Computed example of a mutant assay.
Amino acid sequence: MFQSSHPVVPAHLEPLLAVEDVAVRFHSARGATRAVDGVSLSIRPGETLGLVGESGCGKTSLGRAIARLVELEAGSVRLGGVDLTRLSRRQLRIHRSDVQMVFQDPLASLDPRWTVGALIAEPLNIHRIGSRTERRDRVADLLAKVGLPPDAAARYPHQFSGGQRQRIGIARALALDPKLLVLDEPVSALDVSVQAQILNLLVDLQKQLGVAYLFISHDLSVVEYISDRVAVMYLGRIVEIATREQLWSSPAHPYTQALFASIPRLDAATAGPRAAPLKGDLPSPYAPPPGCRFHTRCAIAQPRCRSVSPELAAMPRTAHAVACHFPTSSSA
């Protein structure tokens, strides 16, 4: 659907974001939901890390934990060397501007009683940045950056299309010059043609501003287009992480291969063999399977998989990492 033209970020850059052994649990009458269970990853300055997996695998919970919108049960989130999980509420407020979030449904995240100008200026008001004139100029500049006219500032969110509302959400997220944007399914509710426009906007903004992205999506075509590297998440854990090129050419985890196999292909009649599509339902996060959590749906599961949880480890002579006892290489 999309043809990627996203530049690769130099591998020698130190991480902007370093997530270590993060765990997030939600408690209810049914018990504790292990939404995120020991996740570690990093993002370099100006890089886009795609985060992909089925609904319910913990992607959004991880994104919200990084943005400090939910509490962590364990682990750390370091941004520019500062551990955000160790800060007081007052200290966190100072650093919160460095990480902003763009949500799936922009209309639900924008107060319908406020004008677009007021919505975009709100972060500036909260952090007491600039005079009234400077804030108004900043709003005009942000509207221009996301491709909206100056008179949009005086209108209300319901007066815009879905794609335009997402542009407003992006402008608001950029108001404080963040170092990292967490984008949670930002184009999933949009038509394909509008998706392409928003994705191209994000690529252009990244080139202009140098901001890093954690891009959360279930759509592999979208993730392929915008990402430098991709992490695959299953039932609260990262099971594979690699560059976009590595993952698309040689997915090593059976879950990743099954995700690729589930994508319809125009050349299905002449293409070579591929992994079996994903089957069965996602197990309950209240009681995840022992051992490898994917073994209940895995076509190559062995007895060891049912009792021993595999560690995420780098494959020989590559930065490609996989959490599988029997990693394989299969063309997507």
Rank of each mutant, 00 (worst) to 15 (best):
A32R: 14
A32H: 12
A32V: 15
T33S: 13
R34S: 08
A35Q: 01
A35T: 00
V36R: 01
D37N: 09
D37P: 01
G38Y: 03
G38V: 01
G38S: 10
G38P: 03
V39W: 00
V39A: 03
S40I: 05
S40E: 05
S40L: 04
L41Q: 03
L41A: 04
S42M: 04
R44Y: 00
P45T: 03
P45F: 01
P45I: 03
P45A: 06
G46L: 07
G46H: 03
E47Y: 02
E47R: 06
E47W: 02
E47Q: 15
T48F: 08
T48Q: 09
L49V: 14
L49E: 11
L49W: 04
L49A: 10
G50Q: 11
L51G: 05
V52M: 09
V52D: 00
V52H: 02
G53D: 11
G53P: 05
E54H: 11
E54N: 11
E54F: 14
E54R: 06
E54I: 10
S55Y: 13
S55C: 12
S55F: 12
G56N: 08
C57H: 00
C57P: 03
C57E: 01
C57N: 00
G58C: 08
G58Y: 05
G58W: 04
G58E: 09
K59R: 02
K59V: 01
K59A: 02
S61A: 15
S61P: 02
S61R: 02
L62F: 08
G63R: 00
G63M: 10
G63L: 10
G63A: 09
G63F: 07
G63D: 03
R64S: 07
R64E: 12
A65E: 05
A65W: 06
A65K: 02
I66Q: 00
I66H: 01
A67R: 01
A67N: 01
R68Y: 07
L69P: 00
L69G: 02
L69H: 03
V70P: 02
V70T: 14
E71W: 05
E71F: 07
E71D: 15
L72Y: 10
A74L: 07
G75C: 12
G75H: 04
G75I: 07
V77A: 13
R78E: 14
R78K: 15
L79W: 03
G80K: 13
G80N: 12
G80F: 07
G80A: 12
G80S: 11
G81A: 12
V82C: 12
V82S: 08
D83W: 06
D83M: 07
D83L: 04
T85I: 06
T85C: 14
R86D: 11
L87A: 09
S88Q: 09
R89N: 13
R89M: 07
R90M: 09
Q91M: 07
Q91A: 14
Q91R: 13
L92W: 09
L92E: 10
I94V: 15
I94F: 12
